[in-house]
Simulated scan of single mutants.
Amino acid sequence: MEQFRTVGVIGRMGSVKVVETLRRLKQFLIANGMHVVLEETTATVLPGHNLQVSSIKMMGEIADLVIVVGGDGSLLGAAREMAKFNIPILGVNRGKLGFLTDISPDGLERGIEEVLEGRYVEEKRFLMDAFVRRDGEPVGFGSALNDVVLHPGKSTRMIEFELFVEGQFVYGQKSDGLIVSTPTGSTAYALSAGGPIMHPRLDAVVLVPMFPHTLSSRPIVVDGKAEIKIQIGDENGIYPQVSCDGQKHIAAAPGDTVTIRKKPHKLRLIHPTNHDFYATCREKLGWASSLTMLH
C-alpha cells in the first residue's frame, strides 16, 4: 500500500456541514503529519488556514491522495480532473446517496486513519470521453465517470437519432434521448430510467433509451471498449444537448454526430476495508436485508 504524505482536500460549496467536516479533516491530517493542500475555492471557506492552496490541476501534480468532502456530484467533478494524474481519491459523504463517497462524517477520523495507515481497498473505475462533431469538425468535448446523456434540453419534443456500436447499425429511434452509462453510473440516472445495476468491476457500458416511442426498446449492455456513435437526425426540430455527468453540457444540432469511447485513464477510487458494493445497494436503494423484513 502507498504511503501518503501530501493530501489534497476538495469540499463542496454552500454547506455549513461541509465546512464543519473540512475543519475536522484539516486538524486531523495536520495532527498526523500530513502536508495538506486546499483546492483554491475550498480554501475560501476556511479563513486563517495557513495551508498551501492550489488549483485542481496543480493539485493533481503534487498530491499523493485527494479527499473530497461532499456528495457523489463533488466526487464526479474531482474524478474527471484527477484520473489523468493517477492519484487515488477518497470520498467523505456530505451528500444524499453516497455511492462513491462512503466515509461517514461520524466515522471521519477512524476512516481517514485507516487509509493513512494503508488499510483500504482500491478500485479502478473507467471514464468515458464524448466528442460532438458537426460536418466532421469538433464542436464540443466532455468526460464522464457516470454517464453521457443525449437529451432535449429545455424542449419537450422528442429527438430522432440513429445508434451505432463499433460501426454497426443498432437502430433508429424517436425518444427523449439516450443514456450511455458506465458501471459506476448504473446506480445513478440510468437506474431511474430503467437500466440494470452493473457491478463496478464490469468492463461494460449500458445504453438506456429515455421514454422511447416504441414498446420494444430495452437497455443494451455492450463491451466497455466499444465505440458508440449517435447520429442526430437532420430533420429534428430541436437543438438537443449532450450532458456529461449532468455537469458539463454541450449544445448539439440536427445532423451532429456524438462519439463516445472509453477514456485511456482510469480513476483510482479508495474505500474503507469494510466496503461492500451489495451492502451499499441495500442501504441506498432500500433492498431488504433479511427475509424477516419481507413479512
Results as ranks from 00 to 15, higher is better:
Val37Gly: 06
Gly98Ile: 00
Gly185Tyr: 07
Val37His: 08
Thr184Ser: 15
Asp102Ala: 05
Leu215Gly: 10
Gly48Arg: 11
Ile238Trp: 01
Leu163Met: 13
Lys154Leu: 08
Gly195Ile: 03
Cys244Ile: 01
Arg261Thr: 08
Gln3Asp: 14
Leu127Gly: 05
Lys248Gly: 00
Val9Pro: 05
Ser192Val: 01
Gly71Ala: 10
Ser175Gly: 10
Val208Leu: 12
Phe4Tyr: 15
Leu145Ala: 14
Met59Ser: 04
Ala190Ile: 05
Leu291Asn: 07
Lys266Glu: 15
Cys281Met: 15
Leu285Thr: 06
Thr101Cys: 11
Ser175Glu: 12
Leu291Ser: 13
Glu39Leu: 07
Val170Arg: 08
Leu22Val: 09
Lys229Thr: 13
Pro138Ile: 00
Gln3Pro: 01
Arg23Pro: 02
Met1Ser: 14
Gly73Val: 00
Thr292His: 12
Gly177Asp: 09
Phe85Cys: 09
Leu191Tyr: 08
Asp176Ser: 12
Leu145Gly: 12
Tyr278Phe: 14
Glu109Asn: 12
Arg24Thr: 13
Val92Glu: 05
Lys225Ala: 13
Leu51Ile: 03
Lys263Gln: 09
Ile220Thr: 06
Gly195Thr: 02
Leu163Asp: 03
Arg23Phe: 03
Val18Lys: 02
Ala204Tyr: 08
Met158Pro: 07
Thr41His: 10
Thr259Asn: 06
Val205Asp: 02
Thr187Glu: 00
Ser143Ile: 07
Tyr189Ser: 02
Gly60Leu: 10
Phe277Leu: 01
Ala83Thr: 06
Phe169Val: 00
Leu29Asn: 04
Glu227Lys: 13
Ile238Glu: 07
Val258Arg: 03
Arg125Asn: 10
Thr44Val: 11
Met293Glu: 15
Pro183Trp: 09
Val66His: 06
Arg110Pro: 00
Gly70Asp: 06
Asp234Trp: 11
Lys26Tyr: 04
Thr21Tyr: 08
Leu178Gln: 09
His249Gln: 11
Val66Asp: 09
Leu51Val: 03
Gly194Val: 02
Leu191Met: 09
Leu294Phe: 03
Arg125Lys: 14
Ala251Ile: 06
Val121Lys: 15
Glu162Met: 12
Gln52Cys: 06
Gly167Gln: 09
